[in-house]
Amino acid sequence: MKKLPPLNALRAFEAAARHKSFTAAAGDLFVTHGAVSRQIRHIEEFLGRRLFERLPRGVELTDEGREYAAVVRRALEQVAEASDAIRTRADEKQILTISTTPRFAVGWLMSRLHLFQRDFPQYGIRISSTTRLVNFERERIDVAIRYGRGNWPGLSVTRLFDHEEVPVCAPALLEGPDALQFPEDLARVRLLHDGSYQYWRSWLDFAGIDNVDPHEGWVMDDPNVLFQAAIQGQGVALANPRTVETELRDGKLVQPFDLVLATDVAAYAVCPEQNADDPKVRAVIEWLVAQAEAQE
């Protein structure tokens, strides 16, 4: 590397060029006027050029001084930005970021997360709730919980549990003369769909029901809105029992029938292959597996 002027001299020059005053630069740097003057002289001797014109009432940059000041300022800003970025990453090393769907976070993860924090107090926790596939590196995600068949290239994949579908509804729909007793009774109520009709078609076929139109009812893109509608008695929704665990336990939702539709997808904890041995990644994945197995 080529020889560079001392950093203190560059900082003194940048401050003096910005203020057009050695005195103001000294105030910025918490040094004396004489110290700034010596640093400027040092850098001028290093360059073999005058950077300031000394005037009776202050200083003015020479043409070369103005050119040099722009380069030095840009270089110091880049050093400061790079330093901040590294400090930020160092501060975030103990932050564990988990990406999952809003429904999984609300219905399953949040009721258990305090147990992870109890066992691993050294980690801060950040939950990124989204339905899209995240970019692990750009978004600084450590672990994501995804539904699928487990075939994501470049990712380390750990199965948590199978995805199943059961009808759920408000307890009120099981009361009165029109109470739901058999799957055929679904013909009398509104079906609630999660953005498609796929699972209701599959569940009705599985139950052998042909008097219910699987395309009837309301379609909602947000599962949290869907289950809130079910809680309010607006109809019957299909759900993975695990993701409405809280609502089932609190009695806000009930399962009117025992028929459980198995699907060909499952919930997985995933991370980039190169990060699989990171201690905090390994800790949270092993914890997720243990929590899932405790429900089996």
Rank of each mutant, 00 (worst) to 15 (best):
M1R: 14
P5F: 05
P5L: 07
P6C: 01
P6V: 03
L7H: 00
A9K: 10
A17V: 04
H19W: 08
K20R: 10
A24D: 15
L29W: 06
F30P: 00
T32Y: 03
T32G: 10
H33C: 01
S37I: 07
S37Q: 10
R49V: 11
T62I: 02
Y68W: 03
Y68T: 00
V72H: 11
R74I: 02
R74N: 11
A75N: 11
L76F: 00
E77A: 15
E81K: 09
A82S: 11
A85I: 05
I86E: 12
T88N: 06
E92G: 09
K93N: 09
K93M: 13
T97Y: 03
I98D: 09
T100M: 11
T101C: 02
R103W: 13
F104S: 02
F104H: 10
A105I: 01
M110F: 08
R112P: 03
R112A: 01
L113E: 04
H114P: 04
H114A: 14
Q117Y: 06
G124R: 10
T130Q: 10
E137N: 11
Y147S: 13
R149V: 12
N151A: 12
P153L: 06
S156V: 15
E164Q: 14
P167T: 04
P171R: 07
A172W: 11
L174N: 05
G176C: 08
P177T: 12
D178Q: 10
A179N: 05
P183G: 01
E184Y: 07
R188M: 00
R190F: 05
H193I: 02
D194T: 04
Q198P: 00
W203N: 08
A207G: 13
A207L: 11
G208T: 06
I209V: 15
V212S: 04
D213E: 07
G217D: 05
D222P: 04
P223T: 02
Q228K: 11
Q232L: 12
Q232S: 10
L248K: 00
G251N: 05
G251T: 06
L253G: 01
Q255T: 14
Q255C: 05
P256V: 07
L261W: 09
T263G: 02
Y268K: 08
C271Y: 00
N275W: 05
D278R: 06
I285A: 11
I285P: 05
E286V: 06
W287M: 04
V289Q: 08
A290S: 12
Q291G: 09
E296F: 00
